[in-house]
C-alpha cells in the first residue's frame, strides 16, 4: 500500500477532491473504465502542473502515461527527475 503523502496518493487525492472521480485502485484503467474523458484530461493536466510544478508538454501527451494512477505517478516522478539537473526545484 502506498502512503497518502506518496506521489500516487497525491494524484488520487487530486482526482477525488478536485475532479470528483475516485478510481478503486492505482492500477484501474481510468480510460477504459470511462472514469475520465477528454475534458477530464485537460483538468487533470492543469491540476498536475499546479500540484507538482511540472509542465505537461505536447510531446508528453501519450495515453500510456495517464492510463492509471500508478502510471500518472510514474510520469510525474520522471518529469520531476528530469527537472532536477537544471537546479529547478519542484514543489514538494
Amino acid at each position: 500500500m502506498r502512503g497518502d503523502d506518496s506521489v500516487a496518493g497525491r494524484v488520487a487525492a487530486l482526482m477525488r477532491d478536485s475532479m470528483f472521480v475516485d478510481p478503486p485502485d492505482d492500477t484501474t484503467d481510468i480510460v477504459a473504465s470511462g472514469l475520465i474523458d477528454s475534458m477530464g484530461f485537460m483538468r487533470l493536466f492543469a491540476l498536475l502542473e499546479d500540484e507538482f510544478g511540472i509542465e505537461v508538454r505536447s510531446a508528453d501527451l501519450r495515453l500510456d502515461h495517464f492510463r492509471t494512477i500508478e502510471r500518472i505517478a510514474g510520469f510525474v516522478r520522471d518529469k520531476r527527475a528530469a527537472r532536477q539537473p537544471a537546479g529547478d526545484h519542484a514543489a514538494t
Binding site: 487530486l14 477532491d17 478536485s18 475532479m19 470528483f20 483538468r43 492543469a46 491540476l47 502542473e49 499546479d50 500540484e51
Partner: peptide, 16 residues
C-alpha cells in the same frame, strides 16, 4: 468547499 483545487487552480490554467 467541495473542491478547492478545481476552483482555485482554474486561474493558473487560464494564465498559462
Amino acid at each position: 468547499p467541495a473542491g478547492p483545487g478545481s476552483a482555485d487552480r482554474c486561474a493558473d490554467t487560464r494564465g498559462s
